[in-house]
Design a protein around this nucleic acid. Sequence first.
DNA 1: CTTAGTGCAAAGGCTTTGCAGCAAT
DNA 2: ATTGCTGCAAAGCCTTTGCACTAAG
Lengths: 142, 142
Amino acid sequence: MIEQQSAKLKELGLRITPQRLAILAALDGDTSHPSAMEIHRRLAEGYPTLSLATVYNTLEALAENGMLLELPITKGKLNYDPDTSDHDHAYCSVCGRIFDVFPEGEPRGASLPAGALEGARLLSVRRVYYIACKECRGKEDL
Amino acid sequence: MIEQQSAKLKELGLRITPQRLAILAALDGDTSHPSAMEIHRRLAEGYPTLSLATVYNTLEALAENGMLLELPITKGKLNYDPDTSDHDHAYCSVCGRIFDVFPEGEPRGASLPAGALEGARLLSVRRVYYIACKECRGKEDL
DNA sequence: CTTAGTGCAAAGGCTTTGCAGCAAT
DNA sequence: ATTGCTGCAAAGCCTTTGCACTAAG
């Protein structure tokens, strides 16, 4: 599985470095949608000299190449999702957690509404549900 | 129309101040989705002492009270939309502009997919189309 | 008179940048 | 041997905070 990711990096023309593999391994199977700083913090123990800049560089490179999703959901930061399959996200405004939401039914057509923005090229679509999650219902402020 | 907005503020229990009215007036009918700093810059001429903190405070108060939408679309910042009707947005990754996209057909059901996140309360849904707009097609990097 | 709102400046969080040295190819 | 990547520190951008003062009600 580290094999796969190495192969993928090579295929994209990116160099295979211990840092990149560590970041990919940390993200693999993770559904908590960590931010760059969270990833750095997690890896700090095992890789004490791993720099924040490297984490940012790596995440940017991986996102640009479609190996992970960059999610602008909250105010000041980005969160990352290693699952690049077609799905949405739910953000709990109370606890701040981000959940995956898989669409029901047949695959959705990713297209702009007819008539909107003629001539534009659609790159991707992102949908976010703002929620108060099960654990947080009732704790809402007010 | 400044009447309407004053009434709305009063109704919400917010004080009517020149700063707030200026911000509301600046936003009214604007479809460019400015950020807080852009709004501050626009108003700086007419209100030289208007502080950035006031702009942020005001926008936060208005957003909390549903008078405008806060859009976390780009990396480091929020953009504001005075149109609170049901619609989506398209973000051109090349020029950075944000466009309104009005849904076609009947009003959409705002609900989580069946089975997803049982027990959560849905607060709102936001959809963003990432695009290369008409003017920017062809200028994409690579 | 009360207290929400304002302005100013400082601090804070997240991200980017510059650059010398290192390591992957 | 190349040059992409790393680590470190500094800088940058956007936003928040603290607090004394002002003005809305």
